[in-house]
Simulated assay, not measured.
Amino acid sequence: MQPTTPAMAKETDVLIIGAGPFGICLAAHVQQLGLDYVMVGKPMEFWEQNMPKGMYLRSACDWHLDVSGEHTIEHFLAGQNLTPADVEPLFLEFYLSYVQWFLDQKQLHNLPLYVHQLDQEADGSFTAQMEDGTLIRAQSVVIAVGFKYLVNVPDDLLAVLPAGHFAHTCDFVDLEQMRGKSCLILGGRQSAFEWSALLAEADAKSIHLVYRHDTPAFAEADWSWVNKIVDAMGDDPAWYRNLSEAEKKEVSYRLWAEGRLKLEPWLKDRVSGENVNLWPNTLMTASTVQPDGRISVQLDSGEQMVVDQIILATGYKAAVARVPFLQNGNVLPLLAVEDGFPVLDESFQTNLSGLYITSLLAGRDFGPFFGFTVSVRSSAKLIGRGLVGKG
């Protein structure tokens, strides 16, 4: 990338890369702080394009986007003469309607383009080259890209999957195409059962869930303790990083147990039909694509089956090096990284002054809560504090 000058680029205080819940919440807070910002990306695009219609969320109405506490989900409901009891558990479509209302109320603006390349300049500022060649020069950059680039396909599965004949859940959301067809889902946690329920309702002929653990219990998850911890981190950002390793493991396990050892009760009846088959404590050991394009699958139980589609419900994994616009610029080689996570200070700032990273990629220093929208307000509050201090 050629050196740029302010005359060649749009100037802003803060460039926010990502227009999902973390980016939108931050944009509203930055605007309230009086800083100029540019938010790039298409609002809630991942939620709209990579989650299936009719999906329920595990979050409740208290996981709203407003640091100031004004434009909450409850406020949104009040305008429709509704209460949380009327809408929980939340539908994906309902949450999207709340976010659009939030954008309108806050009068937030965005540039609906992707960043192609991000560079730090000699003076410490940053230049982002957009996909259309537009340049944005910013004193500070916040990366809030969410899950888009962090799809997890475990190596042991990759070794036995038929190349080109499988898809991650986030890339397989048009479930109507499976009407009358058979499907294998690898994974046995919430998303696997959620996709199974929706596939069953789309009249898939058969759905097989194969997973290496016991079937989780159908029991309502308790997130109330998470809210208290995350809200408090807005005033005590070092809380998680100051825990001992044993304490971190305890906190992480408690969150994992709520999210992974439980399945929401509203799924139970929806996956109880004859076309849903559970294979707990089982592994797929081989697969072969047949001449007709269907897939023959071998399980370690000795069972064999033929399916039309394999779906991976294998979640996401932090790997900052997989973010494309970082690969294209000069930032990644300079970035301090541990176990795939960027090393962050108490305001989410990396070792590069003025560069902040949040959402799932903040999990190493702020805890596993930051893979959930419960954390958007504390994230925005702390990043805002860092931005104001830097200015």
Rank of each mutant, 00 (worst) to 15 (best):
L96P: 06
A219Q: 14
H168L: 05
L108K: 02
S224N: 00
D132Y: 05
A138E: 14
D203H: 10
V141H: 09
N152A: 15
L209H: 07
D123V: 07
L198D: 00
L96I: 05
L158G: 03
D231C: 03
I143G: 13
R189S: 04
L108H: 08
L118R: 06
D156I: 13
Q105E: 01
V87A: 08
E194H: 14
L108S: 08
A202N: 10
L103S: 06
G234P: 00
L90Y: 09
D214N: 13
T169E: 07
R179H: 09
Y98A: 08
D235W: 02
D174I: 06
Q117M: 08
A217T: 14
Q117H: 10
L150H: 14
Q139S: 13
A192Y: 04
D156H: 13
V173W: 05
E131H: 11
L198T: 11
L175K: 02
S224A: 05
K228S: 09
M233Q: 02
G124H: 00
V99C: 06
S140V: 09
W101N: 01
V115L: 07
E194G: 06
E201M: 11
P216N: 15
R137G: 02
L118I: 13
A232P: 01
Q107V: 10
N110G: 06
A219C: 11
L111Y: 04
H116M: 07
G146R: 12
T215L: 14
R189W: 03
H116Y: 13
L92W: 05
H213K: 15
R179D: 10
A221I: 01
H109M: 14
R212A: 12
V210S: 14
